[in-house]
């Protein structure tokens, strides 16, 4: 009799030990499965902030006269132009005809869409070809020699 009681007690101790072990391990695993995403979340992404209403493009002096470049303004392509007199202009970079990305043609000093040859002047007015509407303008501001593009007309 006594021996059976002993073994029962022993197995219940064993069982309790295993249960506590299981609780500890799974508890730790659970903690890890919460901490992992939280820690990942706390680690700031490479792009340190959301693209917002204004975008810093770079130094004014680095941009040559009579040139154009497409910049990513959030998820909108913007064509930044510096005309032959040095004035900056920014236009929505998507052709109003069939949504192609437009480019600046230095030889004609015009904005030009390669898809169907629509052309705009540097203020975005549609000049020739299929575009039905002018290009939307973006504001360009200069602060301390740095160039910023912002939503809305300057």
């Amino acid at each position: 009799m006594a021996t059976t009681v002993n073994s029962e007690q022993g197995s219940s101790v064993n069982r309790r030990g295993f249960l506590n072990f299981l609780l500890g391990i799974t508890g730790l695993g659970w903690l890890a499965s919460i901490l992992y995403p939280v820690l990942k979340y706390l680690n700031p992404p490479e792009l340190p902030e959301a693209n917002i209403s204004s975008l810093k493009v770079g130094k004014v002096d680095d941009i040559p006269y009579n040139s154009g470049q497409i910049i990513k303004f959030g998820r909108t392509p913007v064509l930044l132009i510096r005309d032959s007199e040095g004035t900056f202009k920014a236009l929505h970079g998507v052709c109003t005809h069939l949504d192609c990305i437009v480019q600046y043609k230095p030889d004609k000093e015009l904005v030009w869409c390669a898809c169907h040859g629509g052309s705009y002047d540097t203020d975005g007015n549609n000049l020739s070809g299929p575009p039905p509407r002018p290009l939307e303008k973006f504001a360009v501001n200069i602060r301390d020699g740095e160039l910023y593009v912002a939503k809305g007309e300057a």
Binding site: K40, Y41, P45, K151
Partner: peptide, 23 residues
């Protein structure tokens, strides 16, 4: 930690949280 209030930032920051921030 990532949200920014304001009419010109709120939407963008939530989009940023959902797309760019891990988890």
């Amino acid at each position: 930690l990532y949200y920014r209030p304001g009419a010109d930032q709120a939407y963008e920051s939530v989009k940023f949280i959902v797309t760019n921030v891990e988890f």
